[in-house]
Structure formats: C-alpha cells, structure tokens
C-alpha cells in the first residue's frame, strides 16, 4: 500500500555566490516512512535541511508540504523557520543546539511554544486559560521526556547531560512541536553502540506514532536497518535513490564513497 505523500521537493537549487550547493534536487517523503539522506561530507545534506526548514532561502525549486491530518497543501519556500515548524516540520541539529542554561524540561517546553498562545497579559494575570495551557505544557513535556528516557533528569541543566542524552533531548524537543515530519541531522554521530541501539528503537517508536522521519546519517548500519528508502547525494546532486538493498549494490554510490575502480576502467 502506498502511503500518502507529505513532502515533495522538486528541482531544489541553492547557490552560494558561485557555488552550487544543491543542484535540482528531487525528493519525496510519504507518511509513516523513514527516509535516509546519505552522501560523502560536503555533499549538501545539511544545506538541504536548512533549505527545508527555512534557515536558507532556496535559489530555485519548490518545496511542497501536505498535512496528513488535514490534507492541506502548502509551499514552504520563503516561509520563516518558525512558520515551517508551525506547519509540522521539526528538526534536530548536527552540532547539538540545546538551550544549555535551561533545564531539560524547559527545553522541551520551548518546543510547545508554537502550540500555545499566551502572551504578555496572560503571563501577568495568569488567568484560567493561561494556567490550563501551562499545565498542559508541563504534562505533555513530561510525557515526551518519559518517552525519550530523560524524565529523571528533568530539572538538570541541559548542559549537564551526557552526549547521547543531549541528542535524545534534541529529538524530544523537536517532538514537542507536534510535527508530522521529523528531520534528524546525524542523530547517531558520536554515540556508542549501546546509545545507537537505544536511538534505533526510539526512532522506530516515533515512526509508529505516525511521524514520518527524514534523516541524515553516516552510520551505514543504522541507515540500512532503519530506512524504507534512501536518497544518495554527492556534490549537491542526487546520484541514486531506492531501497537499502538497491543502494547497497548501486555502482554510482560505491563510486562516490570509494572512488573509481581503476582496474575495471582499464578493462
């Protein structure tokens, strides 16, 4: 059965001056799917994420998002990052970007920001609506912390967490924005095998809760076990796409990672 299309990127191009970081990239993500984006260093994977989340304004191309709940379609190019998050796309960062001087719980509560609305007057008078909203924020944030296994450390500073825990907190914070598409930028980087195993089960659990996941990752074992489909990039271009089994034997991919096979060229 084909799942519903939720993200369709077509002809996405990003130029930085004379450098073309992304070259007419096409990609699609369907609901409840784990899609991996791989490629050698400098291939443009993180640039792609930055275009998707509105941090960069793409030079050309189209990013279309379809909400699986409402079926509403929207174009993401040119939207501000916070608007894109509101539409249901959340991300984590390659180099962890937690709010380190805030507690773990508060980090997750920040994620609830775009789903709540109280402002100055609400904060000062703390009426019934604001109190209810705050309580919901705390409750839901705690539930997320329990899911990512950090409820014990809820009141620690985020900077005091171990590396793996910080990565999990970033995922939790992204989940708090109630996304239907989650972008993970190298979630397993620097993790030990045990932490990676925990991460795999966490990602699968998130997928089963109706989130589609697009992830950048260098850990091939993780990519091959998790992903439903893989896109491979090199020098800003898509060089291959397909299931893990197809990618494993794809000549272009092997070439990009290992270089040209001199023997076979001569033959």
């Amino acid at each position: 059965m084909m799942n519903k299309l939720i993200l369709e990127v077509s002809g996405l191009t990003m130029d930085f001056g004379g450098i073309r970081a992304l070259d007419r990239l096409d990609l699609d993500v369907r609901s409840k799917e784990i899609v991996a984006l791989i490629g050698p260093n400098g291939a443009g994977k993180t640039t792609f994420f930055n275009c998707l989340t509105g941090i960069y304004l793409p030079s050309n191309g189209d990013i279309r998002l379809v909400s699986p709940q409402t079926g509403k379609e929207s174009r993401l190019n040119g939207l501000k990052p916070n608007k894109i998050t509101e539409k249901g796309v959340a991300r984590t960062f390659q180099n962890i970007r937690l709010f380190s001087q805030m507690t773990v719980l508060e980090n997750v509560m920040i994620g609830r920001h775009c789903r709540t609305s109280s402002l100055i007057l609400g904060a000062i008078f703390r009426g019934r609506k604001t109190r209810k909203e705050e309580q919901e924020t705390i409750d839901k944030s705690y539930e997320i912390l329990e899911k990512v296994g950090l409820a014990e450390q809820a009141n620690e500073f985020a900077s005091n967490l171990s590396y793996g825990a910080q990565r999990r907190l970033e995922i939790g914070r992204a989940l708090a924005t109630e996304p239907f598409l989650l972008l993970l930028d190298e979630p397993a980087a620097g993790m030990n095998p045990q932490e990676t195993a925990d991460l795999v089960s966490l990602i699968l659990q998130i997928r089963d809760e109706d989130h589609a996941i697009l992830l950048i990752e260098h850990d091939m074992k993780l990519v091959m076990t998790l992903s439903d489909r893989i896109f491979v990039m090199d020098y800003g271009e898509k060089i291959a796409q397909g299931t893990p089994a197809e990618i494993r034997v794809n000549r272009a991919v092997i070439k990009a990672y290992l270089g040209e096979d001199v023997e076979s060229d001569n033959a």
Binding site: G54, F99, Q101, R173, A176
Partner: peptide, 15 residues
Amino acid sequence: LALREDEIACQAMGI
C-alpha cells in the same frame, strides 16, 4: 531565555 541561548534553534522550535 531560549532566544538568549541560541537564535537559530529558537526559530527552529517555532518561536
């Protein structure tokens, strides 16, 4: 507070 810590992460979280 989040804005003080990290602007980009802040925006990515929908602020």
